[in-house]
């Protein structure tokens, strides 16, 4: 296995959190992992682009322009990266913030369109959108299992937000369900 994943959106959407959960879960399973959160001038509301590579062999490049998966949480991110997706790769697109007619990927790219923000609101908390995204991702691409994420989520969620963990786990489960319902 060799998965290079790009997650893109704007600061505050929780991309850093879910990418860290993914990276830690992979490490805990003794897989190779590289994790490149964006750095520099980003701040809340600014761009956030994260590269995570997970493999059962030595990882070369920590950055990719032919990713196995793109998680696009907003339109700017989608339009910046969607041309990089080649046949056989996966796009998870947040259609709460991305008009469907703006999704133009090559043939053979598997596209999962989810109104992620609306789904989070339906769960009673708009801040669960990132966890639903994470659930959608592992539901669509079997990189890691739910139990792998559950095992590390406590290391990522800060102490003061500890009571949100059950809701976050429910949101991951919801994401996995959405994939099943969609397919």
């Amino acid at each position: 296995m060799y998965y290079d994943i790009i997650m893109t959106g704007f600061g505050g959407q929780g991309i850093q959190t879910i990418s860290l959960i993914l990276a830690l879960a992979a490490m805990k399973k003794d897989l190779e992992v590289t994790y490149l959160p964006s750095y520099g001038v980003e701040k809340r509301g600014g761009r956030t682009n994260v590269y995570v590579t997970i493999a059962d062999q030595e990882i070369g490049s920590p950055i990719s322009n032919t990713p196995s998966a793109l998680l696009a949480l907003d339109l700017i991110g989608l339009e910046f990266y969607q041309d990089m997706l080649e046949k056989g790769s996966l796009l998870v697109a947040n259609t709460s913030l991305i008009p469907e007619d703006r999704i133009r990927v090559k043939e053979g790219v598997s596209v999962l369109k989810v109104r992620i923000n609306d789904q989070a609101v339906a769960m009673g908390n708009p801040r669960l959108a990132n966890m639903i995204t994470l659930g959608c991702f592992i539901g669509a691409l079997p990189v890691l299992a739910y139990a792998d994420l559950e095992a590390v989520i406590g290391e990522v969620i800060p102490e003061r937000l500890r009571e949100t963990i059950p809701d976050n786990l429910r949101a991951i489960t919801r994401g996995i369900e959405i994939v099943k319902e969609t397919r």
Binding site: A23, M27, E32, V33, T34, Y35, L36, P37, Y39, Y51, P62, I63
Partner: peptide
């Protein structure tokens, strides 16, 4: 380079 400085690995 900045990539080696900024990225994370086990």
């Amino acid at each position: 380079d900045a990539m080696v400085g900024q990225f994370q690995e086990p």
